[in-house]
Nucleic acid binder design. Structure first.
Lengths: 244, 244
DNA sequence: CGTCGGGTTGAGAATGGTCAACTTCAGTGG
DNA sequence: CCACTGAAGTTGACCATTCTCAACCCGACG
């Protein structure tokens, strides 16, 4: 969780050094920012690395904040009073974690694997939200995308079989692993979640996830030597197994 | 689907007649509008009544639009290629139905019971979104609320038992039936969804919903003469049955 | 009075959960 | 280098919840 704060500017056009080449600037909400706004935001923002299993945005009693994911995967989990829990979303770079505007939440954002984030106090974030309408539009757009994704996940959990859910998850990871143009068959794809986290995400148990992974392997749809990565043997049949 | 278009203004302060006393104006996104903006929006908006089972916002080959629910309940459903379907959200007044900004959707918004809406062409809606930042903020806020609700539903479907889901649904209806201050034990509460729709919403089958309703009745937690409404006998035990 | 849609109830099947044993592998210390 | 340990993963046997299929009920409506 080392703080890499940088408030220097790069020489050329006044863009803060921390923001040069940043994923959030290229494709995330910060793309709407320039000049003074970017500089003043970068002055209060804080780049850090979150270790696997640590919470995002609640580092050591600090106040409410919003974080931009720069790399890695963050899981959002909710918990029922009796302890049952469910991962309600996985977020990849470059998306926002944390409430952009006030509201009760009770969501746990946890780093699945190492995650780099750029954290901004919520007060500062809200300031930019109000000062820059293009920024607010991007936040709205991102919220709507997350709504869509959450609804898709809802259908998956409510209507798909265990095998379909596992296949759907693998497909989801594959889509994020190959950023844009998809080369036919890549090599080993790292799985960001452990079996237990997959179970939490897919509304299953560890045992069922394990069984269905084995089933996919025995059906020669995927193959893997270790549990944490795999290789797609037939994308077609994987899509089929994912059931839409 | 009668069109009740009204572009007249009320005498007093220039508020369009159609907007006087409107739910969407009191608590919905239109609360951010006044004067000319409200007038010009009301000029292109269209109040109509949607009959049960009809789709919202796709009336007879019209272009893309956004609708504000004035009264009634709208269900949002997604469908898998093989026909399995799932209701991914229920929306009550005064919330927006339809994509505020572009994006692919494939969601079916259907009236569950009679619904009154105020429909606005998306182009006009986007115009207001850009012209009035308070309006955009309300849209963002509503999107975030929907995200929260969808995540709650996700946990319910992924982790709760059939009985808990049915009880959770009843509680949800109760909360919307008693708008604000809840008088202890009200009378008959109408259930907006049929058993089949409840099943689609809760990720169950009609038979299981029916059985669990019976179970709740036999346990004297609720009571009902007809299938379409019920009476709460013990809110405490209902909360308990809903499991958080 | 018959039919139709929606709802309820029952019996049996099946999917996924539970509990428990076992394997694998990384890390540790002899 | 090897044995030990603990965490993560796999596999198996059994069980429970929910689904499937089918019959039946009931009220609305012709």
């Amino acid at each position: 969780m080392q703080a890499l704060r940088s408030i220097e500017r790069s020489g050329i056009c006044g863009e803060p050094i921390a923001c040069v080449g940043c994923e959030a600037r290229a494709r995330g909400v910060c793309g709407a920012l320039a000049g003074d706004q970017l500089v003043s935001l970068s002055r209060v923002s804080d780049r850090r690395v979150i270790r696997p299993g640590e919470h995002v945005g609640r580092a050591a009693g600090e106040s409410e904040s919003v974080s931009n994911i720069l790399s890695g995967v963050v899981s959002l989990a909710k918990r029922l009073p009796d302890g049952r829990q469910q991962i309600v979303g996985l977020q990849f770079a470059p998306t926002l974690v944390g409430r952009p505007i006030a509201g009760d939440d009770a969501i746990e954002a946890t780093a699945a694997g190492p995650v780099r984030v750029c954290t901004i106090p919520r007060s500062a974030f809200e300031g930019v939200l109000t000062a820059n309408q293009a920024f607010e539009r991007r936040v709205l757009s991102q919220a709507l995308s997350q709504l869509d994704e959450t609804r898709d996940l809802l259908v998956t959990l409510a209507r798909k079989t265990a095998l379909e859910r596992v296949a759907t998850y693998i497909n989801m990871v594959v889509r994020h692993a190959r950023p844009v143009g998809s080369p036919g068959e890549p090599g080993e794809i790292p799985l960001p979640l452990s079996r237990g986290e997959m179970a939490d995400f897919l509304g299953l148990t560890i045992e069922t996830v394990s069984r269905k992974m084995t089933e996919l392997r025995k059906a020669k749809i995927v193959d893997f030597a270790n549990a944490a990565s795999l290789r797609i043997l037939s994308q077609t049949r994987l899509d089929q197994a994912a059931g839409g």
